[in-house]
Design a protein around this nucleic acid. Structure first.
Length: 264
DNA sequence: CGGGACGCCTGTGAGC
DNA sequence: TGCTCACAGGCGTCCC
């Protein structure tokens, strides 16, 4: 998309927040290099002729929520019921389809100020950032008394592990989801960090997860879900020890785990 | 300040 | 067969 010139911006039903800028103000803006932080995407937009392609420019912060998907079309197909955002450019259209509308598209004057800065502040480390080490991960957990599952989900220590991947990572690391984060030893924190990384890497390979209700023809449905060791498998035998997988509620979210393989 | 509950939204599948 | 209803999830926001 880099270098594409915006022709028009179209909105469908409201997403999580208002766009924050009248749609006609986007015409003639030029798209820069797309970036990512956590589950947010940053789409820089700068005036035609400007050479500033860095994070210093204004842009759009996008989030796919839980049911959002983006697609790039050379032309502009008719908008469907769940197509809530179209960025039409001279090279094609970027479209956001989001049935549940937990997703967001918000304009920000820069990545480091305004709504973008507010939404990104407080995000935890990128899981594959080399600066995130077993030592720093363990140290961050030492400050938290909440159950480790809740801490992973909160995303302020490490981003990227939502409900499915948090459950899977804890299983892989052999850690009970209700264990207080600050009770996790150095060796186990090391294992957990490796497990989160392995889980996310595997999910990326398989194209992510697709909930049962979203395996539509659009975005190819991710294959990860069917590979899950514990997630969504309550009552079924653990594939390591055959003990039935259990389900518990933590912070209003379902947690799946094996009581034998995952110790406190 | 940390931790937990809540609400947004809608397709799906289970139960009647 | 048709209808109702609980449930699923990311994450900002509110309250204790």
């Amino acid at each position: 998309m880099r270098g594409a010139r915006v022709l028009q911006l179209r909105l469908g039903k409201p997403l999580r927040w208002p766009l924050g800028l009248p749609v006609d103000e986007f015409a003639e803006q030029v798209v820069g290099d797309i970036g990512r932080r956590g589950k947010y995407l940053w789409l820089p937009l700068h005036p035609a002729g400007s050479t500033d392609l860095s994070g210093g420019s204004a842009g759009l912060l996008l989030h796919l929520g839980m049911s959002g998907s983006l697609c790039w079309n050379p032309t502009l197909p008719p908008a469907g019921a769940h197509d809530h955002f179209d960025l039409q450019t001279d090279r094609g259209t970027l479209r956001l389809n989001d049935p549940r509308r937990f997703g967001a598209v918000v304009w920000s004057p820069s990545l480091h100020s305004g709504p973008a800065a507010r939404l990104l502040q407080g995000l935890g480390a990128e899981p594959f950032d080399a600066r995130l080490t077993p030592q720093s991960f363990h140290a961050a957990l030492q400050h938290r008394r909440a159950p480790i599952k809740a801490v992973l989900l909160a995303g302020d220590v490490i981003v990227g592990a939502g409900n499915i991947y948090a459950c899977e990572s804890l299983f892989l690391a052999g850690i009970h989801p209700a264990l207080r984060a600050d009770r996790i030893s150095r060796p186990r924190a090391t294992r957990l960090l490796a497990a989160v990384r392995a889980t996310l890497a595997r999910a990326l390979e398989l194209g992510g997860s697709t909930l049962r209700d979203f395996s539509d023809v659009h975005g190819a449905s991710g294959a990860y879900q069917s590979q899950a060791a514990v997630y969504g498998r309550a009552g079924q035998p653990c594939n390591q020890c055959a003990t039935p997988v259990r389900k518990l509620l933590q912070a209003q979210r379902s947690t799946y785990f094996c009581a034998l393989c995952q110790r406190r």
